[in-house]
Amino acid sequence: MQYERPGTLQDASRLLVETQGTAFILAGGTDLLVRSKSDDFEADLVVDIKSVDGLEDVRETAAGFTIGAAVSCAELGAHAELKAAWPGVVEAANLIGSAQIQSRCTIAGNLCNASPAADSVPALVAAGARAVVTGPDGTRTIPVEDVPVAPGETSLGKAEIIAAIELDKRPPRSGDAYLRFIPRTEMDIAVVGAGVNLTLDEAGTVKSARVALGAVAPTVVLVDEAADAIVGTKLEDAALEKLAELCSAACRPIDDKRGTVDFRKKVAGVLARRAARIAYDRAGGA
């Protein structure tokens, strides 16, 4: 196995273009290193992008935040401005694994691993985050929900690399939240995850909202109808019940070792309702 640590995205991309074998991109390595211990794992090339210029920073711009692909989730938790603007995204990133894992893992990696249960992904989708994708043909920016296409599969080309995740600047009276259900208190994988992002008008009425669910379908589910159900409301009980109902209905889960179809549908609604309430409070709603 060949290990490379290029200094630029162009070099990284070129290595991936040129290889004839199976190649993997290494950032935090919290998925790849675990997988590499399996008897079925074969790799010819590993491209470590942690030395690539500019991927190690969180930059705050007039438009919002650009999070480099090599920034660890722990660093997101330590970034006061980002945490203030996008508490839901940061809390999702800080639920992954343990403190040790969070000090290595990245949200770009979490996205590219394409697990339906990825914790940061529903929060990013709810936040309307975008992925900046660099490849041999240049750079394109796509919504994060367009990255995973199936469990373990992404829409990225062979030599494409996510260079950064972008988040918008927050309008006033905005809030987001992410909740997941795990049978333990930590060190576990989401059985259901729910991210809610919303903005209120001056009267405290929900002006816009996005609701995303994880671990209830092959890929993250953006539930427009659930978001619509709370727009124009102040999250009265009826609106929250409608939101929960529509989230449960939007799930296409499976029975597996982590949970049943019925359990996931019901709990998706419960978590979406609770996350909406937290996001609403964070947005300053009464």
Binding site: F181, P183, V191, G259, T260, D262, F263, K266, V267
Partner: peptide, 11 residues
């Protein structure tokens, strides 16, 4: 008494 089993029993 995993969460799915408790929830199913309640339901």
């Amino acid at each position: 008494m995993s969460p799915p089993r408790i929830l199913a029993a309640l339901d």
